[in-house]
Design a binder for these strands. Structure first.
Lengths: 199, 199
DNA sequence: ACCCGCGGTTCGTCAAGCCGAACGATTGGA
DNA sequence: TCCAATCGTTCGGCTTGACGAACCGCGGGT
């Protein structure tokens, strides 16, 4: 079980495409609107669209333009993606020892994927267990990527390749992941979490 | 500076709305298409749309329907949201001691917001430093929320309220955040990271 | 030189989104 | 009871997105 995937907003391809999509949007809009207790007229007014348009959208007669949908997202104060992809989650536990296959392994470096998104979605979570040794440099990832690192125990030198920062237990750093960056353990059994988000 | 916000895909409202949006979409589509080395004709074919449509979209003459945009997302194998919101990040460091104002503080519990998203976006990152004591129960958050917890040091009982799990250093768990759940430290100075994502 | 294929843009047509207004249905107050 | 306000739906129209075909520009093969 190397993947441990959980879904997000992936163009899955296994998607019923058209009708399926607008059905979800219709349901999502109605759900979010009712959740925030607005009437169609009020929501339409805030979003700057005709209430007739909104009515048709919620009734599933759809395929709105992105501007329209965006306006609704703004008015509902809800991230765009939630309107096109409603989800439901589950519980997962991963014991310290049992890496579900340690993803990337090198002499002094062991990373485990805790939670990843399908093909190339929005964020991955890694557990890093590292031993002191030479600097481990990562090539830039997708543009727009951000990495968040939190040290659990030990010490590490981490951050942008040009100006890494020394961190200890409880320390946190975030930096662009689309530029060269490094991670080097300074103490034995250094434990860290890396959240890599692709935005 | 309780916020430490970084942007994502929020209907920010401070958005140049129309033209701004379709401009971003135009750029994103072109960027992603070229990144995957496809020609307009080929991408249009895979997405099942007319290449003329694609041409107009990339040229900024836009406001595509969601179906069209979704089809492109599928063909490009890229999450929907990336097509409407490209970002750029910065570096931030937070030393163990210096909570930027410890966000939520109780006798045996101290949570610090490491990284949060505007109003109600997609994910927040917390650092938890807890002392043994009574169980700390969290009310459900937004529907669709998922929490990821990684223990850095110490021990803690964490998970769904009905069936929490005991975790030690390096242990990881994820569970629905829209249902009641708990976090109880079992050892002094228990350190944890919580990634809360709103999907 | 010629032609064929390919990448990208432009044009004319058709369908569909979006809009304002008008329409039943329901609720609450004078 | 009647009126007014609100909520949601439905109906012409104007606008615009999506499509196919035709159109330039280019390179490679014969």
């Amino acid at each position: 079980m190397a993947s441990m995937s959980d879904r997000t907003t992936p163009p899955t391809g296994a998607n019923g495409s058209g009708a399926e999509l607008i059905g979800q949007i219709a349901a999502s809009i109605r759900r979010e609107r009712e959740r925030s207790g607005l009437s169609m007229a009020e929501l339409a007014r805030r979003a700057g669209i005709a209430k007739s348009t909104l009515s048709q959208l919620e009734s599933g007669a759809g395929n709105p333009s992105v501007e329209t949908l965006w306006a609704l997202g703004v008015a509902l104060n809800v991230p765009f993606s939630r309107l096109v992809d409603p989800p439901r989650p589950t519980v997962k536990v991963l014991r310290a020892g049992e890496g579900p296959v340690t993803h990337s392994e090198q002499a002094n470096y062991a990373a485990t994927v805790l939670s990843s998104c399908p093909p190339n979605a929005r964020r991955d979570i890694y557990r890093i267990e590292a031993q002191p040794g030479e600097t481990r440099a990562s090539d830039p990832h997708m543009p727009g990527t951000v990495e968040h690192v939190m040290i659990g125990s030990g010490r590490a030198l981490v951050g942008p390749a040009q100006e890494p920062v020394e961190l200890g237990p409880g320390d946190y750093i975030s930096y662009p992941g689309d530029a060269p960056h490094v991670f080097r353990a300074l103490a034995p059994d250094t434990l860290a979490v890396i959240v890599m988000e692709h935005i």
